[in-house]
């Protein structure tokens, strides 16, 4: 729609041309099917009273322009661990109601990982947020509802993660193509326009695409176990009667948090758990199953850490005696 960029000189040479990009200056285009009627009137004297005449009226019907703009609504990359929702706007920048074929492609060059497109959804209740069970699902490659000119429609792309490494990024491309047809600007579909006129492909090619970004969020937990032996003679030999302190360091790395983290360890054979020796982050825990996080018995120890954020380090120690 950005035609007429050529410089023209108006008939009146004293005035520079005032050409500007035509339709971009207006919020809304004339609807397809509108009739443009032009009539001129002339008044004149031939010696008597002033007379006037009308010209014939020339009439043009405005055809349908097929144009669309797609944009990502997400201000930044959407964090994905299991699944995520990408938001886009699809705006009919043409001048007639039109439906668009919506296709989400999760395989974009440069992706660190490719997500899986589970479905598309239309923001049926128009609140800008995906509401499962309320917003209408559309299969990938399916049609949008009819979109009125200059009315943005929010489209959600529901994706799930393959379990990518933390911080890995991915893009998903959403393509919208006019159902009536696409092609080079100026391509004409006779009789296919709103109101029975032609449909004409606009500058967008009657299709447009935009990308939404994902960043994978994953937490991994490393456990490092060390043992320190103190024998009854002041040395560090694992002789009978020696005390062994086991230390387990749990380190959560990545981003986000992990749920239901529980550290358990069995008491090694030929050793005996030293009652009430269990600690978490240097704080003693009772052996009983009670309000604190730890439980210990002759069989082993269990420390329930629950939800643990990335970056956290928890240290568990317990002592055994060599039999």
């Amino acid at each position: 729609m950005k035609n007429s960029s050529a410089i023209r000189v108006a008939l009146n040479g004293t005035v520079a041309s005032l050409i500007f990009a035509s339709s971009a200056a207006y919020a809304a285009s004339v609807p397809a099917g509108t009739l443009i009627e032009n009539t001129a009137t002339a008044s004149f004297d031939t010696g008597g009273p002033t007379q006037s005449i009308n010209s014939n009226t020339v009439t043009i019907r405005v055809d349908e322009l097929l144009d669309v703009a797609v944009a990502s609504k997400d201000a930044s990359a959407i964090t994905i661990s299991g699944s995520a929702v990408l938001s886009f706007t699809v705006t009919n920048t043409g001048n007639g109601p039109e439906a668009f074929v919506l296709t989400a492609d999760p395989a974009v060059a440069g992706n660190g990982f490719n997500s899986t497109v589970d479905s598309l959804a239309i923001d049926t209740n128009n609140n800008g947020v995906y509401d499962a069970g309320i917003d209408t699902l559309v299969a990938n490659g399916g049609n949008s509802p009819l979109i009125n000119p200059d009315t943005p429609l929010t489209v959600f792309v529901l994706v799930s993660s393959p379990g990518a490494a933390d911080g890995s990024t991915s893009q998903v491309n959403l393509l919208a193509q006019a159902v009536t047809g696409t092609g080079a600007p100026g391509t004409v579909f006779p009789g296919a326009g709103e109101g029975g006129g032609a449909a004409v492909v606009g500058n967008s090619g009657a299709d447009d695409a935009a990308r939404g970004s994902l960043i994978s969020s994953a937490v991994s937990v490393s456990l490092v176990k060390t043992a320190t032996v103190s024998d009854p003679f002041g040395g560090s030999q694992p002789v009978p009667g020696a005390r062994i302190r086991f230390q387990i360091v749990a380190n959560a790395t990545g981003s986000g948090s992990i749920n239901n983290l529980k550290i358990s360890d069995a008491i090694p054979a030929s050793t005996t758990y030293v009652a009430n020796s269990l600690t978490l982050d240097s704080t003693p825990l009772t052996d009983l199953a009670d309000s604190d996080a730890g439980v210990a018995s002759a069989a082993g120890v269990v420390v329930t850490l629950g939800t643990t954020s990335a970056g956290a380090t928890r240290t568990v120690t317990f002592d055994v005696k060599v039999n």
């Binding site: 007429s4 035509s22 032609a198």
Partner: peptide, 11 residues
């Protein structure tokens, strides 16, 4: 014969 928004017309 075909006119769409943005087209320039000569009256």
């Amino acid at each position: 014969t075909q006119v769409v928004p943005g087209d320039r017309l000569k009256f």
